[in-house]
């Protein structure tokens, strides 16, 4: 599921009866939200500094100390080439974070633009975008990526780019749905009557009302992309060998499950934690924005 479900979740969440009672469910207890923020902050820190903060050089091999158990020197042990697992995890934060960030932001920008346009203008723009969405529904993104990457032999950035292209229609659909919901509202009608330009209405009047769901969706897209990128690395279709990357580490170290399970389990846990934290923060952001939003 991963990305597919994450993206659809939001589209489902665009209620046809948004004016209805707002259900109160605190997204998560306060301290969990704080934990998630702290965790993501640490991830961002490592993603920015790269291997600078790693205890050891993540690519230095020590072939006389392979698959070593955790010790004071190697807190999480070493892998099949004697490299420090902890340092590789830290160095791998970059590819685990930057790709999803680009995907989330890219599809946020393009998706909002297209979604607003489709919802507001309707007509040809709308049906074109809907056809694109239908196409994406027919063949889900992971399958396209498996074929493309398997055939072309993908590397990191092309994969990220394809994912942006694949995610945009899902984002656009969410924004379009939310926009359609705003269209019959009196304020839109009022703005039109007093002669506010379409562009102003779209961006200054409608968009702020669409923003909560769109921003929250971006967090979900991020969480989903973490999973998809890791899945591709796991299938050997993502980053080239040798690069520290969580998904790749999972794949490379899977044979070590019986000797040095930490080398394989640690990246697995990090992938789950990152995606979960982003989802929780997304939930939280949605609640905050829709409470404070100009509804």
């Amino acid at each position: 599921m991963s990305g597919v479900s994450a993206s659809t979740t939001m589209s489902e969440a665009v209620s046809t009866r948004g004016t209805g009672r707002r259900r109160r469910r605190r997204a998560a207890p306060q301290f969990i939200i704080v934990c998630c923020f702290v965790f993501i902050a640490v991830v961002v820190l490592f993603a920015v500094t790269g291997s600078l903060l790693a205890p050891q050089d993540p690519s230095v091999q020590n072939l006389s100390n392979i698959t070593a158990a955790p010790s004071a020197e190697h807190l999480l042990g070493t892998d099949a080439l004697g490299r420090d697992t902890l340092s590789r995890l830290i160095a791998g934060t970059g590819s685990a974070f930057v790709g999803p960030l680009v995907i989330a932001l890219g599809s946020f920008l393009i998706g909002n633009l297209l979604g607003l346009l489709a919802g507001y203008r309707g007509g040809r723009v709308d049906s074109l975008i809907m056809r694109w969405i239908d196409l994406m529904w027919a063949i889900p993104s992971l399958l396209i990526l498996v074929v493309v990457a398997g055939v072309v032999g993908a590397s990191y950035w092309p994969t990220v780019l394809i994912l942006v292209v694949l995610t945009v229609p899902l984002d656009a659909r969410v924004v379009r749905g939310a926009t359609l919901e705003q269209m019959p509202r009196p304020y839109v009608e009022a703005a039109k009557t007093v002669g506010v330009s379409d562009r102003r209405i779209m961006w200054l009047h409608i968009w702020p009302n669409v923003a909560p769901i769109s921003v929250a969706n971006t967090f979900l897209v991020f969480a989903g992309s973490v999973g998809i990128l890791a899945s591709l690395s796991f299938l050997g279709l993502g980053v080239p060998p040798g690069k520290p990357d969580w998904g790749l580490m999972l794949a490379e170290n899977q044979p070590l499950l019986f000797v040095q399970p930490l080398a394989c389990l640690a990246p697995a846990v990090l992938i789950i934690l990152t995606a979960t934290s982003m989802t929780v923060i997304g939930d939280w952001a949605y609640e905050r924005l829709s409470e404070e939003g100009p509804r």
Binding site: S59, Q61, L63, A80, L81, P241, G242, E252
Partner: peptide, 10 residues
């Protein structure tokens, strides 16, 4: 293959 190639690079 991947491991030995990485070791050669090193």
């Amino acid at each position: 293959y991947s491991n030995v190639s990485q070791a050669i690079v090193a």
